[in-house]
Write a protein that binds this DNA or RNA. Structure first.
Lengths: 139, 139
DNA sequence: TTGTATGCAAAGCGTTTGCAGTGAT
DNA sequence: ATCACTGCAAACGCTTTGCATACAA
């Protein structure tokens, strides 16, 4: 049965405060503020246990090392802005997932990552285009 | 400038024949049939070069080591069997991707990974269930 | 002949594990 | 008093790199 320790509390706390998925190394650094002497092995063991408990979710975006976030968030996907590289949550979900696969395959779960421009970056690019057009008119 | 070698030909060939994304180790095994003595370091170096050329695509699924496939394939997604862990191509695509994000976001690309049972594993599980049921009837 | 490509072995790096000691129950 | 948890360091698996050699060009 699971025990309540200083270290695990610190790790939970780090994940709760972050508000974004964290790398194991980031968890270590953040949690060491509350639990000095905390080791990386403990972080890995705690994260693994929490993932198995269903308390934490392991997330990996293509080409990135796995990150961890609390799983009490509702089902969601991620949107990465290709300009500022920030990751946003997307709370909708395609409706017709299980229709995508050939017959014989059984779909049980899915992960979706969207890429594009966040509202902020899309706006600042639109303004940049207008600026260029204005310069052209002056020539 | 790039040179034409037995080893790279074998690696290209392995990727072309596979019809699914391969792990570097799988590339090695497959390519050694054509290029005996081929080493894993050469596979990694060749794959890296081909990715930079744009000839090959590196795909990484959550929790999995990166796999490689030719990038001349039409747009598609991936399905991983949770039992045998093999990865398959899925040639369909959800229709309503850009409707998922709040207004202001601009979707330019997306990656989707499905999880479940491949036909083979789904079948063998169904057979296992039948076997258990038969045993129960005998008791 | 030149210099990229190769094979081997060693090094890197993130992650896991063995072990003796710690501490929650 | 248990026995799960911890820290450390060694081990691990995948990937990269240093180096001397092989072989396209």
């Amino acid at each position: 049965m699971e025990r309540h320790t200083r270290q695990r509390a610190a790790i939970r706390d780090a994940l709760a405060r972050a508000g974004r998925p964290l790398l194991p190394q980031e968890v270590l650094t953040a949690a060491q503020a509350t639990a000095p002497g905390l080791g990386i092995a403990t972080v890995y063991r705690a994260l693994k246990a929490m993932v198995e408990e269903g308390e934490v979710r392991k997330i990996s975006l293509p080409g990135e090392n796995p990150r961890f976030e609390r799983s009490d968030l509702p089902h969601h996907h991620h949107f990465q802005c290709l300009r500022c590289l920030r990751v946003f949550d997307v709370h909708n979900c395609p409706s017709d997932i299980s229709r995508l696969v050939p017959s014989g395959f059984v779909v049980e779960d899915h992960e979706l990552t969207l890429y594009g421009r966040c509202p902020e970056c899309a706006l600042s690019e639109r303004l940049a285009v207008k600026r260029v057009q204005a310069e052209r008119r002056q020539e």
